[in-house]
């Protein structure tokens, strides 16, 4: 599985309140959530994002609330993958559980710039910044988590076991 797209770059401690403000949590509709994704820190994100694009964050990406609406909104906006220096732990679980690919890679998080075209090979964890030609390697998921991802998310993996 691969992804390729243009990068939207944000800083450290991107919290779930800016990913999807609570004033929109009266819906579970992913497309409706996506129409407000990131609006409190980047009003133009939803207009500019194209299917396949990639989000890059710094430390502690997705901190704050447990709202699964946050990864759901990012996924439904068309983002194919989030790369960050580190992820807040509930966001990390949620992304895996709903099938939003995420990669922890400090070097890529620091080097990749806004607007770069980046490709990702999920099988090898290799991240290529095609604009600069630089390559990075993300830490692979433990086998336990790979199984959840391969099954298509947590609920599907639970059904497989049942």
């Amino acid at each position: 599985m691969n992804a390729k797209g243009t990068v939207f770059r944000y800083g450290d401690n991107i919290d779930t309140d800016v990913i999807i403000p609570a004033r929109y949590l009266n819906t579970q509709n992913a497309q409706e959530l996506a129409s407000h994704c990131m609006e409190d820190i980047d009003k133009t994100f939803v207009q500019r994002v194209k299917p396949g694009d990639i989000m890059v964050g710094g430390e502690n990406f997705g901190c704050g609330s447990s709202r699964e609406h946050a990864p759901l909104a990012i996924k439904a906006s068309g983002i194919s993958c989030v790369i960050a220096k580190s992820f807040a732990r509930i966001f990390y679980r949620n992304a895996i559980n709903i099938g939003l690919p995420i990669l922890e890679c400090p070097a890529a998080s620091e080097a990749i710039r806004e607007g770069d075209v980046v490709s990702v090979d999920f099988d090898t964890g290799v991240i290529t910044d095609e604009t600069t030609g630089r390559q990075f390697e993300a830490a692979p998921f433990p086998p336990f988590i790979q199984k959840i991802i391969q099954a298509g998310g947590l609920m599907a993996s639970l059904k497989e076991k049942a």
């Binding site: 704050g64 609330s65 447990s66 709202r67 699964e68 990864p71 509930i90 679980r93 949620n94 559980n97 709903i98 998310g153 947590l154 609920m155 639970l158």
Partner: peptide
């Protein structure tokens, strides 16, 4: 608990942590 502040119950000597909705469903 599908709420990040589920960690509150550590005060009574429990292991308690916040998760997302899919974890709650599971």
């Amino acid at each position: 608990g599908a709420d990040s502040h589920t960690c509150t119950y550590g005060a009574v000597g429990a292991f308690s942590t916040g998760v997302g909705s899919t974890d709650m469903a599971a």
